[in-house]
């Protein structure tokens, strides 16, 4: 895939729950290799926006194009595109009845028709990368929060996605475990993985983000390079927000 290819093209994306408009005509693009960090006040629609990108939330208006295909078209088979869009959740959502290795190999075996050996070989390699190969046969309940989230990240990598969505991946972690998860994400970014990350970790936004997006009242009020975003914010709501979180 060529560099700077557009992965997501979002046009006038709207989402309402009942008569509560949560996303209000959001338009933006996400390109190959970008790390887009999404920040904003609680309840502003960050999660809803992120979850719209793989249609976990069904948009009520506008369109999302992924790799040139309109995935908001009702005729589109979203299951196929979700294989290419990884997702990491705040609460990990590992499968408690399966071992770590089974968590990681289930989807590649069932959806990509990989052989068990091939899927396990790939999973073990990823486990080594995050230093958790000795946990291969453990169950999720035997892991710490930080370990669970690292597993969740490599589980999504097993599908070889073109982009990974992160919704507050470190918010449910004890402070001493935040670093180990952020480090895995940094490594991913270095290797060129396209990422969209909702987080409160402003340090991560500054250091790893290629673009920071401020969502407020369901709209993108400002998006810019991290340097401009933090040093020279223009939107008054953003300034107020930054004064609170920095």
């Amino acid at each position: 895939m060529a560099d700077n290819q557009i992965l997501f093209e979002i046009k006038d994306l709207c989402k309402s729950f009942g008569d509560h408009l949560v996303l209000d005509h959001i338009s933006t693009t996400i390109k190959q290799g970008e790390v887009v960090v999404i920040v904003g006040p609680s309840g502003s629609g960050k999660s809803t926006f992120l979850r719209s990108l793989n249609l976990l939330e069904e948009p009520t208006g506008g369109s999302i194009t992924f790799e040139g295909l309109n995935i908001t078209d009702p005729k589109c088979n979203i299951n196929k595109y979700r294989q290419k869009i990884g997702m990491v959740f705040q609460h990990f959502n590992l499968f408690p009845h399966k071992t770590i290795l089974q968590n990681m190999t289930l989807a590649p075996i069932k959806l990509l028709n990989k052989s068990k050996e091939e899927a396990e070989r790939q999973a073990m390699e990823l486990l080594r990368r995050v230093g958790l190969e000795e946990k291969a046969n453990a169950y999720p309940s035997q892991l710490s929060g930080g370990q669970k989230q690292r597993i969740a990240i490599v589980r999504s990598l097993c599908m070889d996605p073109d982009v990974i969505l992160f919704d507050e991946p470190t918010s449910a972690l004890d402070p001493e475990m935040v670093g180990e998860v952020l480090n895995v994400m940094k490594d991913l970014a270095k290797q060129g993985m396209t990422m969209a990350v909702v987080t409160h970790e402003m340090g991560f936004a500054k250091e790893v983000g290629t673009r920071v997006m401020f969502i407020d009242e369901g709209q993108i009020k400002e998006e810019n390079s991290p340097k401009e975003f933090f040093e020279n914010p223009k939107n008054p709501r953003l300034r107020e927000f930054l004064s609170k979180v920095l």
Binding site: R82, Q83, F89, N93, F95, A107
Partner: peptide, 19 residues
């Protein structure tokens, strides 16, 4: 969250249910 994790990996509704 278990449903969402399954669906986000690309499983259909019934596959998520079964597996």
């Amino acid at each position: 969250g278990q449903f969402e994790a399954g669906r986000s990996l690309g499983f259909s509704y019934s596959q998520t249910m079964i597996h």
